[in-house]
Design a protein around this nucleic acid. Structure first.
Lengths: 259, 259
DNA sequence: TCAAAAGTGTTCAATGTACACCCATGC
DNA sequence: GCATGGGTGTACATTGAACACTTTTGA
């Protein structure tokens, strides 16, 4: 785990450790009880909101880099992670004078317009999905706050980050029709209403309970167990689990869902 | 249009004009009479084959960069172009000693291991599709030959370019189910057999003529004209054209094809 | 008149969609 | 016993898939 000192050091000396002109931005979708949220950071001083992001170390793959960034913000290791698009408009990452001052103050370093971190940066977008009740968001050294925002009520974000979120959501919703999801999002054993709510939330629309269950079961990626979950003052739902074999096969070969 | 001198100059002085650590690789699919090909370049001296690619100028967008690269190799301007994935394995772009010598010879420049062009490079992959009978491939200054290769008979390519081709084809085939294609690939007026062959070729499988036509027409993206094309010693097929309004709508909103 | 390519419609199967009532549980 | 949420099946509509014969054209 990185210490704050390491991170500040990265701004000062990152020139030697990171790829210039490139960054990773992560759209982390948090799912919980029919709500879809996005993890955002609020920058110190300027108060602007941004996606969690970072730079790529000289010797790590893009995916390792995205995983590292997410782990630093969430502590989570096994996250459903997908590269979806790169953003490279020459003007996308313009920083204001105030931002530059903030970077200088936070890092205790001399930062002028020629600093590597201020050069034109192409950002590789990754999205990820997690159960947000499991996460304790941690700000990075440049940020005061790291917290979840409702997908429908995002503030204005820095750079082109609003566009990145929109594109990530589009990509996620497209992907969900071709690959199963849920493996890292649901407990090992889950109920039909749980996975149903997950799909409804991500797709942002209602899905008929019966038809939904029929399809997942007929695809064979989930199977019913002989156990039930006690949910208090209501009928106990059956538990299901993923058929890992068929789930992985569907991940690799794709499926055709049409909800 | 760039002269050879400009290109060689780019290797010598590109440090100032291009983004380091980043490149664009283009998988240009060429379609003609039921054959799908890919445009490849053969490097001077080493004889290795690669995708057309290049670096990103400081002030151009990623898409402009990809368009520029394709225009230099094909002369074509209006090409169906899609960003599909970025490739960033730290070892993906390792160059052999021989390659480095070749670069030095061709550019008449001193190139050692510290040269910017040899640094770790993340490549942003674009694919494009064109009618290859319209194209006269032009080698770049580093290459002897620029020519079409059958998609099923590709040679071993440099770096991870075989993987890039495979991923591009996967992305193209996925996209074709969600967005119409053909606008820049077919003449303004075309016949059903023509667009049918286009889809069959890209998808690499046979599609029932009647069902295929039924679907495209029922989606409304093509419409029948009162004209026919004379094709010699056979029955004259009707001409169709795209309904641009519905075509663009389908491009934006997506469609669900299931051939 | 023949060869080659294009036009066309129907039937059957599978899938998707819409829909409502009963059951279990804890308070 | 009641409120709440979960379980379940059927009928209908739509879509997909399979399939063959006739027409046009120029040689």
């Amino acid at each position: 785990m990185k210490t704050e000192k390491d991170k500040v050091d990265a701004i000062k000396n990152g020139e030697k450790h990171f790829l210039h002109h490139l960054s990773i931005d992560c759209v982390l979708f948090g799912y919980h009880e029919h709500q879809l949220k996005v993890l955002l950071l609020q920058w110190k001083h300027s108060g602007k909101w941004s996606l969690p992001g970072g730079f790529i170390k000289l010797d790590e793959t893009l995916e390792e880099s995205a995983k590292r960034i997410l782990k630093e913000r969430t502590g989570l290791d096994d996250i459903f992670l997908q590269q979806f698009q790169s953003f490279g408009d020459p003007k996308r990452s313009h920083r204001s004078k105030q931002d530059i001052e903030t970077l200088a103050i936070v890092s205790g370093s001399l930062i002028d317009e020629t600093h590597w971190i201020l050069k034109r940066t192409v950002s590789i977008g990754y999205y990820a999905v997690t159960e947000y009740s499991k996460v304790t968001p941690r700000p990075d050294p440049l940020s005061e706050i790291c917290e979840w925002w409702d997908i429908d009520e995002l503030p204005q974000l820095v750079f082109d980050h609003n566009i990145i979120v929109t594109e990530a959501l589009k990509a996620l919703r497209l992907q969900i029709y071709h690959q199963p999801i849920g493996y890292n999002l649901l407990p090992e054993k889950f109920t039909l209403p749980e996975i149903h709510a997950l799909y409804e939330t991500i797709l942002g629309k209602e899905l008929d309970r019966r038809n939904f269950a029929k399809k997942l079961i007929s695809l064979g990626i989930i199977k019913k167990l002989d156990e039930m979950r006690s949910i208090g003052a209501h009928r106990s739902p059956f538990l299901y689990k993923f058929d890992k074999r068929k789930y992985d096969k569907a991940l690799k070969e794709g499926i055709a869902l049409a909800f």
